[in-house]
Design a protein around this nucleic acid. Structure first.
Length: 226
DNA sequence: TACCAGGAGAAAA
DNA sequence: TTTTCTCATGGT
């Protein structure tokens, strides 16, 4: 459970310097791993508290079952949809959340019509969908719609803690605002930054034999677990 | 066998 | 208002 009580106020230039450092180390990233904007939307829900490798399996099954369109999901029954996304875990909940999100997007006239709406309207609308929280909404806005919204996830929080830039008690919104100030509305940089953070977490973690996962072990360089 | 992963919402305190 | 519980598969 996250504790979010304090504002995030990093030293001037620190977030930009961190981005430059990660970019120099890993180069540009091919991210988000999806073929279409709608696939990003689906992936954003399926990745909730799940490893991406399992999300990939679920998306592959949706493709095989020809369920990877807004109307195909709306037309499917719960059991069929849940069975397809089973590998991503929480399949009953995620099937409902996917349907909620598709119903909302359909009500807006589809993903393309939704993409033309003002950002504030889009974000508020997504956050009003049961099953869509800040991270999921921002994943969709940044990677499916190319909107200037920074995504804060568990990796981001761990990285900030690792570099003593955050305590772990900062609110999602204060973290997001700080990154957006630092990167000055550059959508491409937002996308790259988040991708680089994920890449860094996985790469450093891979080099930590005692961890082997994604950074929660006490001696993992990515983690705040120490 | 036990633990954890790119969360979110409901229920309980 | 804040904290705890629930949802669940697959990799290590």
């Amino acid at each position: 459970m996250r504790v979010e009580r304090v504002a995030f106020d990093p030293p001037a230039g620190a977030l930009r310097a961190l981005y430059d450092s990660l970019l120099a180390q890993y180069g540009t990233q091919p991210w988000w791993p999806a073929e279409t904007p709608f696939e990003v939307v689906v992936g954003a829900v399926l990745t909730q508290n799940a490893a991406w490798s399992n999300v990939e399996k679920a998306i592959a099954q949706l493709k095989t079952g020809r369920l990877l369109t807004l109307h195909a999901i709306l037309d499917s029954d719960h059991d069929t949809l849940a069975a397809a996304i089973r590998p991503s875990g929480y399949f009953n909940i995620k099937a409902r959340r996917l349907r909620n999100l598709c119903e909302y997007l359909a009500a807006q006239g589809g993903l393309e019509a939704f993409s033309a709406m003002p950002l504030a309207v889009q974000r508020a609308g997504l956050l009003g969908v049961n099953g869509v929280g800040p991270e999921t909404a921002d994943d969709i806005l940044l990677y499916a719609l190319d909107r200037p919204v920074f995504v804060i996830d568990a990796y981001t929080r761990r990285l900030l803690q690792r570099y003593r830039l955050a305590s772990g008690e900062e609110s999602y919104e204060s973290l997001r605002a700080a990154f957006e100030r630092a990167m000055q509305g550059d959508v491409y940089a937002y996308q790259q930054y988040h991708a680089l953070i994920v890449m860094h977490a996985k790469e450093v973690c891979r080099k930590a034999p005692s961890c082997g996962r994604c950074g929660l072990a006490a001696d993992c360089p990515t983690g705040a677990g120490g």
